[in-house]
Write a protein that binds this DNA or RNA. Structure first.
Length: 193
DNA sequence: CCGGTGATGCCCT
DNA sequence: GGGCATCACCGGT
């Protein structure tokens, strides 16, 4: 897939949240390759009270207003990180939070980073997957559409609509009623059923 | 199996 | 200074 095609997919955050399900997230670290399949996503955008971008561009959220396909990683609760894929056209503050991955490759390394041997508990949450893939603010603002990046996306075929569940988001206090969360039906690595 | 809670740093008002 | 896009642990059922 050409770069412009990927950018086009990501330029619509509502479409991308569904389209990215089933695609692969690749993390190169220490010469090793860790791979997870995206199984759960959430939409955040500038007309959304729950989004960091809702009050416009700041030092932290500037990345969200940049071109689609870059990483937006921030620290939450003082100790965990959350990984997002910047979406929307340049100048639009939107992103997709990756809430869960299905471990595909490098599982033993993920276990070390997570300090557990339970495969089902490696990447089933936004903070957990950042630990498993060792994603921190050092990996903020990286080009996810470039295979030379230490973090990048590998697009896969679209998941059939019938296999996608659409519900409200998790762990927020504002705009709780918006159905901005998507996950692959019957997948074992969803953060919360 | 649950619901409650503490940890802990930083962003933005 | 208030409030987090979280997680692991603890105690009561």
């Amino acid at each position: 897939m050409e770069r412009f095609e990927k950018e086009k997919i990501l330029s619509d955050v509502h479409f991308a949240a569904k389209r990215l399900l089933g695609s692969y997230f690749v993390r190169i670290i220490g010469g090793r390759k860790l791979i997870g399949k995206i199984v759960e996503t959430e939409i955040y955008h500038e007309n959304d009270p729950a989004s960091h971008s809702c009050n416009g561009r700041t030092k932290r959220t500037g990345v969200m207003f940049g071109p689609p396909g870059f990483s937006y990683i921030y620290l939450v609760y003082g100790m965990y990180h959350c990984f997002n894929i910047v979406c929307g056209k340049r100048g639009e503050g939107s992103a997709i939070l990756i809430r869960a991955l299905e471990p595909v490759k490098g599982i033993n390394i993920m276990k070390k980073y997570r300090n557990t041997s339970d495969v089902g508990n490696l990447t089933n949450g936004p903070g957990k997957l950042c630990q498993a893939l060792h994603l921190t603010r050092r990996e903020n603002d990286m080009d996810l559409l470039n295979k030379k990046s230490p973090v990048y996306l590998k697009f896969n075929d679209q998941i059939p609509k019938d296999n996608i569940v659409n519900v409200t988001r998790i762990g927020i206090s504002k705009a709780k009623d918006r159905k901005y969360r998507f996950y692959i039906k019957d997948n074992n690595f969803i953060s919360i059923k």
